[in-house]
Structure formats: structure tokens, C-alpha cells
Simulated scan of single mutants.
Amino acid sequence: MLSFDSIGVIVVFVIFSIEFGLAILHKSEDYVLKDMKSNLMIGVLLILAGFLEKGFAFGVFAFAYNYAFFKPEISWGVWVACFLCCDFIHYIYHWLGHKTAFFWASHVTHHSSKVFNLTVGFRINCLHLFYRFLFWVPLCFIGFPPEMILFFESLTAVLNFMVHTEKVGKLGVLDWIFNTPSNHRVHHATNPQYIDKNYGGVLMLYDHLFGTYVKETEKPIYGITNEVNLSNPIRILLHEYINLLKQFLSKNGIVNKIQYLFSLPN
């Protein structure tokens, strides 16, 4: 039987193939096609690393779950609570990805594209997978089963892929509640009023609570403020890690080095 992850990968690749085929058919500009090809190669690495990471993460989650403070009986209430907690952890991790040099070194890969289409959902640095899951470990200690946490993580990943599109306009009240394409276009934009907004995974709940929600009011300009023109997938993945290492080594003393890693990105 196919797992949820396997079904998600198949759906994502089918949608990607359709979009890439349409881009060729409509004779999209060369830089768009190059960007899509790079995104595909980065996406393949992401999926391969993801399958490895899921097994490792499950092992760590299962170990932590053995030491849970309590293990509530599985019910709809527990499912809802786990979903809200997973979405909160996603928000915090995503926020850190924009607010600290260390986490931005990985997350910049996703934001460095100047276009916005479904293939950008593939443009995620696989390196962060091997430490990202640690943010969800505390949920195991409070009694949420590993399978439940991984299910919501997989669901969020598939939904987050789907919001990378300009083909879907504003959705009214749904934009206020969920992470929709309109909300995510804002998140990827470099327009001054849009920078560091709309971190939500599935819901916009925590963006409303913490004041990071902004509606799409003008056409987004995509990319990053410190513009980089890269088409080589390896350079797209590693360029900011290289800059991070150079800056880290230039700092005097361990305290300054650690402070730099958790300072605002340049």
C-alpha cells in the first residue's frame, strides 16, 4: 500500500510535469525554464533526502515518545491539538528561517527564485531536513505519537507545495484563515510592506496572533533583497552556507561566533 508520503510525491511530480510542459508549450522565457529545471533537480535531492530523514526522524520521535510525560488516549481532540501544535512549531521554525543567519543559510534557497510557480515549491534546501525535525521533538515528550506528528508534517509539505502559484487569485475569507496562494505570494515578495510576513504553514492563526499577517494588495516582486543570479543547483543550495562559514570564521571568540549565527541575516 502506498504511504501518504509516496502519494504526495506522485501528485507533486504529476503537477510539476504538467506545469513544466505548459511552460515549454507557451514558450516561456529562457530564465523561467532554467529556473524550473534547477528547481526540479533541487526537488529530486529534497525527496531523496526526505525519505532518509523521515526514517531517522521517526526513530528520534519514537525514542522521545518513550519518555513522554503522559500519553493521552487518541481522540479527535488529540488530533486537533497535535495539528495546532505542529502548525505552531512550523510558524516558529519558519520565523527563525528569516530572522537568524544560521537558519537563513538554508531557507534562502527557497526565496532566491525571481519567479513564482509550483516548481518553486521544490526549491527547498535538503540540508536543513537533518536538523529541522528536532523542533518537533518536544511534541513527543508531551504525548503526541510520532506517526501523528509525521502525518501533519507531510500534509503541511504537500499543501505548501500547492500554494506556489499565480494561477489562483484571492479567495476572500479563506485568505484570512488559511495559507493560500495569495498569502504565500506575499511571503515570497520583496515589496517593503511584504517582507517577513505570512509565515503560516496551514493556518494564518499565528500570523494574526503575532502581527505578521499582511494581505496581498499590490503585485509582488519575487526574490531576495540581496539579489543573486544563480542557475547551478549546487550553488543555489550552498552559496549562503559558504558566506555563513566565511563570516563565522572571521569573528573573534566563540561568543561572537555564536552571536553571529543567531543574528539577523545580512
Score class of each variant (00 low, 15 high):
Val186Ser: 07
Ser112Pro: 01
Pro72Thr: 00
Asp5His: 14
Phe135Ser: 13
Glu216Thr: 00
Leu129Arg: 08
Ser154Val: 15
Ile236Gln: 04
Tyr222Glu: 07
Tyr67Pro: 12
Gly55Met: 06
Val168Arg: 11
Phe152Trp: 14
Arg132Gln: 15
Ser231Leu: 12
Leu209Pro: 01
Tyr199Pro: 09
Arg235Phe: 13
Leu159Ala: 14
Tyr65Trp: 11
Phe248Val: 03
Asn179Gly: 08
Lys114Thr: 13
Met204Ser: 07
Ile10Met: 12
Pro233Thr: 03
Ala68His: 10
Leu46Ser: 09
Val255Gln: 07
Gly55Ala: 10
Gly50Cys: 10
Pro145His: 00
Ile221Trp: 00
Leu237Trp: 05
Phe69Asp: 08
Leu238Ile: 07
Ile236Gly: 03
Leu205Ser: 00
Leu46Met: 13
Asp35Arg: 02
Ala23Thr: 11
His128Arg: 14
Asn198Met: 04
His187Arg: 11
Glu227Ile: 13
Met36His: 01
Leu139Tyr: 02
Thr190Asp: 03
His110Thr: 10
Ile258Thr: 12
Trp76Ile: 14
Ile74Met: 13
Val32Glu: 07
Lys71Ala: 02
Gly97Leu: 01
Tyr131Pro: 03
Gly59Glu: 02
Glu73Gln: 11
Lys215Phe: 12
Ser113Val: 05
Val108Trp: 08
Leu22Met: 11
Asn179Leu: 09
Val120Ala: 13
Phe88His: 06
Gly172Pro: 01
Leu33Phe: 04
Trp104Lys: 01
Asn252Gln: 15
Lys215Ser: 14
Trp76Phe: 15
Phe63Val: 11
Ile224Pro: 02
Leu127Lys: 01
Thr100Asn: 00
Pro265Trp: 02
Leu244Ile: 03
Asn179Pro: 00
Phe103Cys: 15
Gly223Lys: 09
Leu205Arg: 05
Phe61Val: 05
Gly21Ile: 03
Phe56Met: 12
Ser263Ile: 07
Gly200Glu: 11
Thr119Leu: 13
Phe16Glu: 02
Ser106Thr: 00
Asn183Tyr: 10
Asp175Phe: 00
Lys71Tyr: 03
Phe178Ser: 06
His90Ala: 04
Leu261Cys: 06
Val214Asp: 01
Asp175Ile: 04
Trp76Pro: 03
Leu244Arg: 11
Lys167Pro: 09
Val137Asp: 01
Phe102Pro: 02
